[in-house]
Simulated scan of single mutants.
Amino acid sequence: MTDLRGARRHLAAVLAPVLALAPAAARADDTQLWATAILQGPIEPGKGVKPMVWIEVQPRLANDVSQLNPMIARTGFGVRIGPDFNALFGYHFQRNAPRGGRVTSEHRMWQQLLLPIYRDPDRLIVTTRLRLEQRTIESAQDLGWRARALVRVQAPLKGEGSAGPLLWSEALVGLNDTDWGQQSGVRQIRAFVGALVPVHPRLNFEGGYMAQIERNRGDHRVNHVANLTLNWRLGD
């Protein structure tokens, strides 16, 4: 417990300059668990450009890991152009059930590019993911546009396909204001530190700590998240 408190104090010190940019207001940190299962990869075997699929389920436990909120299901289709290089589009469903708030259903269309920045499978892999989302809430009128940019660094310790540290950071940017609450600007930053561990030649486990910084007009918060992912890869 002492080590955990020390780690959180250290994280707070690192994030202090970022948080200082937000307006001073009520701060309500939360402890959460995000569990993700992904099935993704080319439908056909072989090299070159291949059709691919993405299927994802992600339950999140919020309010000190006591309440399911939200529940997410995401599907996508596209093409795999090469290692760490693909283009996808798809549909996202999300059920939001905030404590003390109104239950809503969110529907999104999304488009995504995964691009390699640096690739040495034996030592270091750096990629970026660019995603554009069109968000709607049932019973609301406005369409919310949001852009997301993620940079991911993976360092296998014993050559290609081995376990090693994993770092990534993502910025979520609202492109317009909506009647259901989306605000324009950089409204969320996520920073993850953990490890990638192969469980099977096609199955990887990713686990670690993520700081989710949420910034809204008049308030901000930092959620402390245990982020766990199982990723099953199809094809080569």
Rank of each mutant, 00 (worst) to 15 (best):
G6S: 13
D64I: 13
I189V: 10
L132Y: 11
R99F: 08
G6I: 04
K158G: 06
L203H: 09
G218P: 06
F93A: 10
D120G: 02
V193Q: 01
S139W: 04
A73M: 05
M109R: 14
V225T: 07
R217E: 13
A195L: 01
R190W: 01
V65F: 00
H92V: 13
A147L: 08
P42A: 05
N69H: 09
Q32E: 14
V151E: 10
E106D: 08
E56W: 00
G181F: 15
A20H: 15
V65T: 08
Q134T: 14
A26W: 04
Q112S: 11
L203P: 13
R123G: 04
R129F: 04
L130R: 02
L114S: 00
Q111L: 10
P201Q: 14
P116F: 00
R221S: 13
A87L: 15
F93Q: 10
R74G: 03
G207Q: 03
R95N: 10
N63V: 08
F93Y: 14
V173K: 06
A191W: 00
F205D: 02
P198G: 03
L230A: 00
N204P: 06
P42N: 03
F93M: 07
T136Q: 09
A24S: 09
V57I: 09
M109K: 03
N227H: 02
P23T: 09
D177Y: 09
D219T: 14
D122C: 10
R108Y: 05
K158N: 12
E206K: 13
A226P: 11
V199W: 15
L230T: 01
G181V: 13
R119D: 14
M109S: 12
G144M: 02
Y118N: 05
Y91A: 10
H92P: 05
R60V: 06
I117L: 14
G46C: 01
D122H: 14
V103D: 11
A97D: 15
G101D: 12
R5F: 14
A211G: 15
D122A: 15
H220N: 13
G41R: 01
Y209V: 08
H10K: 09
P121Q: 00
N96G: 02
P59N: 06
L113T: 07
L39P: 04
L203S: 11
V18E: 14
I55K: 07
L15S: 02
T229N: 09
Q154V: 14
L196Y: 01
W34C: 01
A7I: 04
N223A: 01
R27C: 06
A147W: 08
L234F: 14
L115D: 02
L21R: 14
R187M: 09
N63I: 01
E206T: 14
F89C: 06
G218E: 10
R5S: 11
Q67E: 10
A28T: 14
N216H: 03
G76L: 03
A191N: 04
R95T: 04
A97S: 15
A7K: 06
T128G: 10
P42C: 02
L130T: 07
V193N: 01
Q58M: 01
A140M: 11
Q188R: 12
G90Q: 07
N227Q: 05
T128I: 04
G159S: 04
G6P: 05
D29V: 02
V199H: 12
Q67C: 02
F205I: 12
G159M: 13
L167M: 03
T104F: 08
H107N: 08
